[in-house]
Design a protein around this nucleic acid. Structure first.
Lengths: 207, 207
DNA sequence: TACTATTTGTGAATCATTTCACAAACAGTC
DNA sequence: GACTGTTTGTGAAATGATTCACAAATAGTA
């Protein structure tokens, strides 16, 4: 299939969220116009995004909310659950473990790793913090599909290398550094400092 | 000045980070090649990005590390400090307040607000949590330049509306919802569920 | 000074994404 | 069934971003 741009994929996430909202509100059909308005984009963009995957609407009527929700879930691979490991039991890690938004969407943080002996063994909610040295043996027994790196920047690359070695293909990186990785491994970066700096740039013109 | 694309601005943040690293390592000059290699981009891209703002290098030699660092800081508006308010004293908020990366770069979280009476009055590090109702009067006395929204999604839009009313022009939004705002207000979204869903999409083809 | 080895800065070309515009499809009404 | 008012799906056009390719500039050397 033709390569889909990342911006399209991100917009699809947005449509899905809106559709769920519409569903809760009892709406049964929705037009590209409505999706565009609520999703901060254009009707043409909505239709083009969807058209990469098929044609899900009815001309003159719009899209069936339930059907399109289903289809998008399927397209995005959100019909299954994912086992997620968190590496780094610091401030950010702690916030992530407790965040409902993940488990609500089928991303279950099943284990937490750290190299700080004082943290190892303690319980975070219903997951125990384990020593990173157990990573290899643990994953051999109970594989995971996604890893979250929330270590200091200095350890992030080494951590990623180990994860790659273990065959992990999807990583969410919170360490504020660009990581090298093979092309078949997807690394999504969340860098809050960059977001703030983008705001700083935007403020240049203001007082 | 010509409108600069967001991708360019984000890359500039990356160059700045690399330059600081080079500086710590004692390097005095750097070429677009080196920046590109370490920054996961191309030399042409580096030069083009910089060329939007001027010409900072010496042909045949490359860029002076200190000088370019200085220039980029200036371009990005990172020569000043910013006063930041955090709205929402939940899990994410707590992680953000403690995160060194912000203050290190001149973004000082000077106040935290919540509408939960049991949280109001407690101290988070050296900032006390205040009731959101104090927002207007507080900002009249001590203005802020940037706000971070870390409330539940349901309250995010109302919170943003208030911030806009107060003249805030830059907002970092952690609530998993698209917010409406005037064109002269910049809102950067950090949506971790979207990042994970992007990974889910990337994993489609894998086992 | 002349020559070499680099590396920048930038128009032009390529590639990607978004927007336009309109035929095709559908429900409702007379 | 014919007509009307919608809204999709999609090539084509426009816009935007990245890459190419090369002249211009520089330091070093002899």
């Amino acid at each position: 299939m033709r390569k889909i741009s990342e911006s399209t994929v991100r917009r699809l996430c947005g449509y899905l969220r809106l559709l769920e909202e519409f569903q809760r509100a009892g709406k049964t059909t929705v037009s590209s116009d409505e999706l565009a308005l609520r999703g901060h984009t254009t009707p043409a963009q909505v239709r083009k995004d969807l058209s990469f995957f098929g044609s899900f609407g009815k001309r003159g009527l719009g899209y069936d909310v339930c059907d399109l929700t289903e289809r998008l879930r399927d397209i995005m691979g959100l019909d299954k659950n994912y086992r997620v490991a968190l590496i780094g039991a610091g401030k950010i890690g702690s916030a992530l473990v407790q965040y409902r938004g993940f488990s609500d969407r089928g991303f279950d943080i099943v284990s937490v790793y750290d190299n700080d002996e004082t943290k190892v063994g303690t319980s975070w909610g219903d997951v125990a913090v384990r020593h990173v040295s157990a990573l290899e043996s643990d994953l051999a027994v109970a594989p995971i599909q996604i890893a979250i790196i929330a270590t200091p920047a200095s350890e992030a690359q080494a951590t990623l290398d180990r994860l790659v070695q273990l065959g992990i293909k999807a990583v969410l990186n919170f360490a504020p550094t660009q990581l090298d990785h093979p092309a078949d491994v997807t690394v999504q970066n969340v860098n809050m400092a960059v977001e703030l700096e983008t705001l700083s740039y935007a403020l240049r013109s203001c007082g």
